[in-house]
Design a protein around this nucleic acid. Structure first.
Length: 412
RNA sequence: CGGGGCGUAGUAUAGUGGCAGUACGAGUGGUUUGGGACCAUUUAGUCUGGGUUCGAUUCCCAGCGCCCCGACCA
């Protein structure tokens, strides 16, 4: 992609009303645009990164054997009434609207209820189970107060996975597989080091649920981390009794702020019971379907990556989620740079080519701000020496790579 | 939802009861070209409604919006 054709532009200053690091940098770099409090648009660069994150999650979901679907954002009140969650006293983040006829509708804040209802059409026998489905879908939550940039919005995309099982053992087995998939996801997007599987309160059907918490100052949760065992406990279940049960030593725990980037939750029959999602077992008797739900917010993951990786000069993307792999800068050597650009493109390497008529300083500053992993500079120097300067965003030292071997450098 | 703060060009900021200024950005022309370069020139603004006043961007009230702290967060 030629940068001169990118409609977004970098800014030296951030809007004064953005305090969170993630929104400030993402706006300055032209990845997102703020529509209103808690609502952001993803611009081309931001969408590329978001889609990289989504792609990784999708691969891992498919690896679990889950099937992707897409449910609607408009939801019928009756299913929510059946689970006693329509009342705004019970669920206070509802966005509700009405049809022209006057009947009420809800804007999706999650999908347990309508999905459970949907599955009544497809689940009837023990032979139909177990299975799992997932989606990337827009959720609306009428938060009292939006904050933390893209990490707590009123509208956001969520990956939600739901499992349907015959027995608790079957649920448990899937749950453990899902936990492993989650760990792989956070490792792949570059948050492995700072993300902890965290014990949290479990609701009615199990003692604990698990959250995946990424350590970061901008986080809203307080967790207690055992760095050796690489597990953590959410403040909400931090009691001596729980510590003993989990075999954790209070002395070794460190209090940290963290952001919840994912969670996994055993639902049991919380939804299948009120919505009558049952199956016939081998004896022909009706049994309740045992469910689980598993969420990840790709936008929040993106925000967490910014919060934990960015430096004073701007964004720093891990390779797996960067909008482009290579940022090619032409410093007064357009002819040669264009040649290199075309060669890289042809080789299938994702490259952003800064072909703008701008000063060197501006191009360098923008490259740092955008945070693309590899910066390749083609200038007059390199034309004379036959080498390009290649620098990683995470390193300060650059290296010289012969122009003719650039493509193979990035293919390996 | 309770408390606090703030609304001036696209962005960031000054200032005043009587001409609204600066920087960045953007446009044009030129000089530059390895860390946001320079000169000239142009462009564009007082959140909305009401009140006080000869006159309101400024003072008062209301609304809307934004930010922060707290509460909340299947």
């Amino acid at each position: 992609m030629r940068q001169s054709r990118l409609f977004t532009r970098t800014k030296k200053t951030a809007p004064k009303d953005e305090v969170s690091k993630n929104a400030e940098l993402l706006i300055r770099a032209g990845f997102v645009h703020k529509e209103m409090a808690g609502v952001y648009d993803y611009l081309p660069l931001g969408l590329r990164t978001l889609n990289k994150i989504i792609g990784i999650i999708r691969e891992e979901m498919n690896g679990l054997g889950a099937e992707e679907l897409l449910m609607s954002s408009l939801q019928r009140p009756d299913v929510w009434k059946a689970t006693d969650r329509w009342d705004s006293e019970k669920v206070d983040v509802w966005f509700k609207t009405t049809l022209q006829s006057g009947s009420e509708l809800g804007l999706a804040l999650t999908h347990e209820d309508p999905l459970t209802d949907l599955m009544r059409s497809f689940v009837s026998s023990y032979r139909d189970l177990p299975f799992s489905v997932y989606q990337f879908q827009t959720k609306f939550r009428n938060e009292m107060r939006a904050k933390s940039g893209i990490m707590r919005g009123r509208e956001f995309i969520m990956k939600d996975l739901y499992s349907f099982a015959r027995t608790e053992a079957e649920l448990d087995a899937f749950y453990e597989e899902a936990a492993l998939a989650y760990e792989r996801i956070f490792a792949r997007v570059g948050l492995g080091e700072e993300t902890y599987k965290t014990f949290a309160s479990g609701g009615i059907f199990s003692k604990y649920s698990h959250e995946f918490q990424t350590l970061c100052e901008a986080g809203e949760d307080i967790i207690y981390v055992d760095e050796e065992k690489r597990i953590a406990i959410n403040e909400e279940v931090f009691t001596d009794e729980v510590l003993q049960e989990l075999g954790l030593d209070k002395e070794k725990l460190v209090q940290k702020k963290a952001v919840e980037v994912g969670n996994i939750f055993k639902l049991g029959t919380r939804f299948s019971e009120p919505l009558s999602l049952t199956y016939k077992d081998e004896q022909g008797k009706d049994q309740m379907v045992i469910m689980g739900s598993y969420g990840i917010g790709p936008g929040r993951v993106m925000g967490a990556i910014v919060e934990t990786h960015a430096d004073d000069n701007g964004l720093v993307w891990p390779e797996a989620v960067a909008p482009f792999r290579v940022h090619l800068l032409s410093l007064g050597a357009d002819e040669k740079a264009t040649e290199i650009y075309e060669a890289l493109e042809k080789a299938g390497i994702e490259v952003l080519y800064d072909d703008r008529e701008a000063s060197a300083g501006e191009k360098f500053a923008d490259a740092d701000l955008l945070g693309i992993p590899y910066r390749v500079v083609i200038g007059k120097r390199s034309q004379e020496s036959g080498h390009a300067e290649v620098k990683k965003r995470t390193e300060s030292a650059a290296q010289e790579v012969a122009l003719e071997s650039l493509v193979s450098y990035f293919q390996s």
